[in-house]
């Protein structure tokens, strides 16, 4: 009973987390099948851990270790398949973003194990109270565990650490200037006209020193370009490098500017897309936690 309940809860937890990552990864049926099955194995492991520990069977722990290495493999698989698909993207994800996605996929399996583990504990604790108590108590514990764990795993998005607003686009000779930052040299007159007519640009102004350091990460900049382009849609075709969405940094203030030519002009949607780009785990910097960082900020 415990095992069935816990496995089921873990599986549901994994399904719940799969449902939420539509933006990071296309949720085609095959991907679903793979991750649900691995999640099921994880949930089963978490579930049998509790009864076997009660029976003083510590061999179960070594199986858990073996499983952990299997789940690490999930990360490798996700990483290599995303890297292979990178060439097929009009706007690259960048290695930092791929690494972030791969980590999330690995971590979610552990969350499924935890959920199943917690459900199994509650189920074993309430086993003498009869199934009328046991089943609702275990399921409630599972729902709370999955919700809390998922909330903890959610990182901030760009909108949480920076202000995003539209900015102006201009040309200084052939140089494309966005919000006072030189972005690139656009040679063709026709391309320049297209930029002036159709392009949208946003300024991403960090709210504090830590946000500034986080936004200075190249992987984060590429992730912004990729995700915004993926959400809004790009105008460019294969090989039209001058229309590639670009993110550049203003060394003066630490703000980022992003310019792209969207498939349709909708400034609201564009701003929403940029604000919703996740902050990459690997890009997060906390300079204020160091003495030197605080001295630079005048708080030392």
């Amino acid at each position: 009973m415990t095992i069935v309940l816990a496995t089921f809860s873990g599986l549901i937890a994994r399904l719940y987390m799969l449902r939420r990552d539509y933006r990071q990864y296309p949720s085609y049926p095959q991907g679903w099948a793979i991750h649900l099955f691995i999640g099921f194995i994880g949930a089963l492991l978490g579930a049998i851990l509790v009864p076997s520990l009660i029976e003083v069977e510590f061999a179960a722990v070594s199986f858990l270790l073996m499983a952990a290495s299997q789940f690490r493999e999930v990360r490798n698989i996700e990483r290599s398949s995303l890297e292979k698909l990178e060439h097929t993207e009009l706007v690259m994800r960048g290695t930092a973003y791929i690494e972030g996605i791969a980590r999330v996929f690995e971590a979610r399996n552990y969350l499924a194990i935890w959920t199943a583990f917690i459900v199994a504990i509650v189920s074993e604790m309430t086993i003498h109270a009869g199934w009328m108590v046991q089943i609702p108590a275990a399921l409630a514990a599972g729902a709370i565990a999955a919700g809390v764990l998922n909330q903890l795993m959610r990182g901030p998005s760009i909108g949480d650490i920076a202000d995003v607003k539209m900015t102006e686009i201009g040309f200084d000779g052939p140089i494309l200037v966005v919000g006072g930052v030189s972005v690139m040299n656009v040679g063709l007159t026709t391309a320049r006209e297209r930029y002036l007519k159709q392009a949208v640009a946003a300024e991403i102004i960090p709210r504090d020193v830590e946000a500034k350091a986080t936004l200075a990460n190249i992987g984060q900049m590429q992730a912004i370009a990729h995700d915004a382009a993926a959400m809004v849609g790009v105008y460019m075709d294969v090989g039209e490098q001058e229309f590639t969405p670009l993110v550049r940094r203003d060394p003066e203030s630490g703000k980022l500017v992003m310019v792209m030519i969207p498939s349709e002009d909708n400034q609201e949607a564009f701003l929403e897309a940029v604000s919703n780009v996740p902050v990459l785990e690997t890009a997060i910097r906390k300079p204020l936690r160091s003495i030197a960082g605080r001295m630079m900020d005048g708080r030392g």
Partner: peptide
């Protein structure tokens, strides 16, 4: 301009203007 467009499409690369009537094609 015309030749620059043709070449940039052939190379799938970007056109940059160096001024004084000099364009270069660079792949990024």
């Amino acid at each position: 301009e015309k030749v620059a467009v043709y070449l940039s499409r052939v190379f799938m690369a970007a056109v940059h203007d160096l001024g004084h009537g000099v364009y270069i094609i660079v792949k990024h």
